[in-house]
């Protein structure tokens, strides 16, 4: 039952969508943040460690969906890893909950440099609807140094992919001088 289907899949058309376009302004701005040595170290692939700092789990659903065959991450050299020790990117979702702050800091401490910290989702950007609660510090930036913000509640897999591809392209390109923000915004200085 399974083998004939696998064989058919081998000769069939892939189910994967074409890659989304990447906002070039964001790429340039990110490239400026990256030292030349870091660029060679990171190369053309990224290992991503997802850290949930207190999301509603909507963001996790979309990060998981990003790993389905329609998006086929590995064709870009993107893959999720089980430990921050193996990661180039911390992809953080959710507001920075006070009860998670220490775990977030420890995850960052375990992530070797050079590394990117991406805040994905409106909550991660600035706390979202949970802003001002006694139980949250605010966005992820309140606890960790953030390089890239991907807004959305939750951001769709395509939006997440655009952001991650911008990181990859930034690594491939020498920096340009001006720093302009696209809708996917590199975080402040």
């Amino acid at each position: 039952m399974l083998w004939p289907r696998l064989a058919r899949a081998l000769i069939g058309k892939p189910l994967t969508d074409p890659a989304p376009p990447v906002p070039q302004d964001t790429v340039h701005a990110l490239a400026e943040r990256l030292a030349a040595t870091a660029r060679t170290r990171l190369g053309r692939s990224l290992a991503i460690r997802e850290v949930d700092s207190g999301s509603c789990n909507g963001c996790e659903l979309e990060v998981n969906a990003l790993q389905n065959v329609a998006y086929d991450l590995e064709r870009f050299g993107l893959r999720f890893v089980a430990s921050p020790k193996h990661a180039d990117v911390l992809l953080v979702t959710g507001p920075a909950c006070r009860n998670m702050a220490e775990a977030m800091e420890r995850a960052l401490a375990c992530t070797p440099e050079p590394r990117w910290v991406v805040a994905a989702g409106d909550c991660a950007v600035d706390g979202g609807v949970f802003k001002g609660s006694y139980a949250v510090h605010g966005g992820v930036g309140a606890v960790l140094p953030v390089d890239l913000l991907i807004p959305g509640c939750p951001p769709s897999p395509t939006q997440l992919l655009e952001g991650l591809l911008a990181l990859l392209e930034a690594e491939a390109r020498p920096p340009r001088k001006e720093n302009r923000a696209g809708w996917i915004a590199p975080a402040g200085p």
């Binding site: 949930d52 207190g54 999301s55 959710g94 507001p95 909950c97 006070r98 009860n99 998670m100 775990a103 609807v129 949970f130 001002g132 609660s133 006694y134 139980a135 949250v136």
Partner: peptide, 11 residues
Amino acid sequence: LGYKHKGTLSL
């Protein structure tokens, strides 16, 4: 558990 407490009810 409790790591994700966001103070939802208070909000």
